[in-house]
Design a protein around this nucleic acid. Sequence first.
DNA 1: GATCGAGCATCAGATCATCTTATGCCCAGC
DNA 2: GCTGGGCATAAGATGATCTGATGCTCGATC
Lengths: 316, 316
Amino acid sequence: MLDLRRLALLAEFARRGSIAATAQALGYSPSAVSQQLAALEREAGAALLDRTARSAELTDAGRRLARHADRILELVETAESDLSAHAGTPTGRVVVTAFPTGAVAFAPALARSLRRHPAMTLQLRQSPPGAGLRQVRAAEADIALVDDWTGHLPGREPDGLHYTPLLTDPLVLAVPRRHRLADPAVPVDLAALRDEPWMAAPRGEPSRAAVERLLAGVGATLPVPWEFEGLGTILSLVAKGIGIAALPLLTLATGDRGVVIRDLPAPALTRHIYAVARPSARARPSTAVTLQALRSAAQDLTSTLEPRRPRPPALP
Amino acid sequence: MLDLRRLALLAEFARRGSIAATAQALGYSPSAVSQQLAALEREAGAALLDRTARSAELTDAGRRLARHADRILELVETAESDLSAHAGTPTGRVVVTAFPTGAVAFAPALARSLRRHPAMTLQLRQSPPGAGLRQVRAAEADIALVDDWTGHLPGREPDGLHYTPLLTDPLVLAVPRRHRLADPAVPVDLAALRDEPWMAAPRGEPSRAAVERLLAGVGATLPVPWEFEGLGTILSLVAKGIGIAALPLLTLATGDRGVVIRDLPAPALTRHIYAVARPSARARPSTAVTLQALRSAAQDLTSTLEPRRPRPPALP
DNA sequence: GATCGAGCATCAGATCATCTTATGCCCAGC
DNA sequence: GCTGGGCATAAGATGATCTGATGCTCGATC
C-alpha cells in the first residue's frame, strides 16, 4: 500500500522540481527526501523519477502518480476538516434507559432541552430493575437512570461507570382529597392506617420493598395490598378514592392532582436517583449534552415537587 | 497526517464490527489492531471507538471517518491500477539527438517504426559534435546518436551511460559517374589523387579529421579542400562532377545516386555509431521501444548500403 | 456459584522504518 | 582549477510496528 507521507513528498516535488527544494519546503534533509522517494518507487513498482548528477525530474509514471496524489491528499484534508468541524457538535443517537417513573418524569423536560440539537436523536426506554446498569456496560444504552433505596450505589464506582447524582426522592403518603389525612393538621400514624385499603406495586419492585421496610420499622405489617403495575396507575386510583399508597414523590411529577401528599414519619425513606454512563460515552458531545439536560430536568422537578409536600404547623 | 494503513484498519473494523474479527481478516494480532486504532484516534484527535469490556463500536466520528476512509482507499487503488495499467505502455515524449547525417539517415525508419505507439511522441534533433553525450547526462535528451572514429568510446561506460552499438560505417571514396575511378577495375591510389579537386566538411568535424588522418597515413597531404557544411551537400556536388570526396558510407543512405562509391585502401577507416542513454531512461518503455527501433533501422541501413560498395575482381 | 470462552487493553521486547549527519560524485559556471 | 548546487549512499540514533504474554470484564452454561 502506498504511503500518504510519501505521496505528499511526490506532490511537492512535482510542484518544486528538485529534491533540495522539496526538502527545504517541507523541513527535511535532501537525503531523507531522496530515500523516501526511492522507497515510494519500490512501493509503486515503477520509476517515478529520472535522475542525473545534477537534477531529477518526474517520469511519465511519476507525473501520473503525482496527479493522483493531489486528489488523494485533498480527500484526506476533507476528512480531517470534517472531523474537526464536528468535534464539538452533539450528533447521532443517544440511548437513555430508565425505570418507569423516571422515564415519565424526565421525558418532557428532556425533549424540550434537547430540541436545540437537531443533529442528535434521543431514544428513551423503560427497563426493568437492574437492567439499566447492564445495558450501559454492554453499550446497549449510553445513559441509565437508576434508583437506589439503599444509599450504597455510589460505592460502585470501581466498576468504571460514572454516577451523576440527579435528585433525592422521598417516599410520601398519597391519600384521596376527601380522606381525613388530607388535612395537614392531622398527624400521620402508620399503625392506625393498617385497616386502610393499601395499594402497592408488585413484589420485586424497589418501591414495594421500600414500603415494606417502612412499615416493618413501626411494627406494622402491611395487609396484603392491592397490587397494580405502574405507580402512575396506583396514583390514579388513590385520586379516585379507592385507597391510599406510599409512593416516591417523583410519581407526582406528571400525576393526578386529585391526591394530597403527606410526609411519612421518621425514619424518612428516600431513594437517590443517578444518571450512569461509561466514561467513553460521556466524552461524546451528544452524551455530555444529554447528561446536562438530565441535571437541569432534575432541578426543575425538585422545584416543582417540593410545594406538593405541605408542612405540618410549626410546633409552639 | 492520517495514515492509510490505519484508515484501512478502521474501514475493516466498520465492516466486521469487532477488533478480533478485523485482526483475523487482515492477518494481525488483536493487540496490533487495538494499538493502531488507538494511534489513529490520537492522530485524528477524536474518539473513534466506544469500548466496553467485551466489545467495541464506532462512535459518530468513527463512522464518519470510516466513510471518508472508504473513499480515500478507493482513490489509492485507482492510482495503483493506473500505474500498473500503464507500466508497459510507451508514453510521453522521447528526445533523440544525433549528428546530422545520423539524423537524416535514421529519421524515415524511426518514424515508420514508432508510428505504432500513438501515446508517445518522438523529437529528433541535430546537435553539434560532443553535445549529444552532454545532453543525455543532463536529461535534456533521452538518447544520443554518437559517432566514434577512435574506437575508444565503449570504454566510457564508467560514466554510467549505456552504449548500444548500431552499425559500423566505413569511410569511402565518392567520385562522379564519369570519373575514371568509377570503373571498379581501376585501383584506387590516393597519392595519385592529390591534384584532384577535393571537397570536405569544415575543420572540427569528425569526418574531416578522419579524412586528414587517412591521407596522412599514405604520406599524402590533402590540398586545401573546398569546405562545405553538411556531407549531403558535398555528396550533391560530387554527383554534379565538381570534385571528389571521402565520406562515411552512411551519407549515401538518402543521398544522390549520381555518384560511384569505391573502397578506400587499407588501413580502413571506420566509425562506430552508438545509441547512448541513461539507465533510468532505458527503463522507460518509450525509450526502450525507441532503442529497439534504432537497432532495426541500423540493420536496414546496413542491408541497403552494402550493395553500394562494388568489389574489385578477385585476384587470380 | 464456578467455570469457560470471547473480546478488549496493556506491557515488554524484537524487528523494522525514518531521519540526520557525513561523505562522495558529477556537473556548470567562473 | 575552484566553487557551489544537487544528487546518492552509508552509518547510526531514535521512533514505530508488531508479536506474544498477561490481565480484566463480561455473558453463557452447568
